[in-house]
Amino acid sequence: MNWYLDVLKKYAVFTGRARRQEFWMFVLFNLLAAIVVVIIDAALGTYPLLYAIYGLGVLLPSLGVTVRRLHDTGRSGWWILIDLVPLVGAIILIVFLATEGEAQQNAHGPNPKLAPAH
């Protein structure tokens, strides 16, 4: 759960680097939270109101962690726009996000794996 909260604390931070673990754990918890919100929304009969509010609330943190993840692989955050290419763009972006980050310091900062735990 800390992975999810840590990303939310960096609400609109688009600089630096994010480890694969940080990104994918955020994706997992975000998916689980979205499922819970949809169930509550359906039970209250307000679908898609709560889901839309939740989606807007996590939009910037999601973009931020994705950009930081791309930075970890040595790519510009603008590569997130490749997702706009139908089908192929999403596959390429997933490959980029699943690729191991650069071991050395890059233009976006030091290796987050070597950073001390907080």
Rank of each mutant, 00 (worst) to 15 (best):
L8T: 04
Y54I: 04
T73E: 08
I35D: 00
V67D: 04
W24H: 11
G55W: 11
V38Q: 06
A34E: 03
W3R: 01
F29C: 02
V7Y: 01
G45F: 13
A42G: 09
T46W: 14
G101A: 09
F96E: 02
K113R: 14
G45S: 12
I92Y: 07
L50C: 06
A43F: 13
V85L: 15
N30H: 06
L63R: 00
V85M: 12
I82N: 05
L81D: 01
K10L: 07
G101F: 04
P86W: 12
L50T: 06
P48E: 03
G64A: 09
V67P: 03
H108C: 03
R17V: 10
I53G: 02
G74N: 10
Q21D: 05
G77R: 08
D41N: 13
I39W: 10
G89T: 05
G101P: 07
R20I: 06
L87K: 05
H108G: 05
P112I: 09
L5A: 03
E22Y: 07
P48F: 07
L84E: 01
E22S: 08
P110E: 15
D72H: 11
L81G: 04
L59H: 06
L50Q: 04
M25P: 00
L50Y: 11
A117L: 15
R68V: 02
G55T: 12
L60A: 14
A103S: 13
L60G: 10
A115Y: 00
Q21I: 09
M1P: 06
Y54Q: 12
I35C: 09
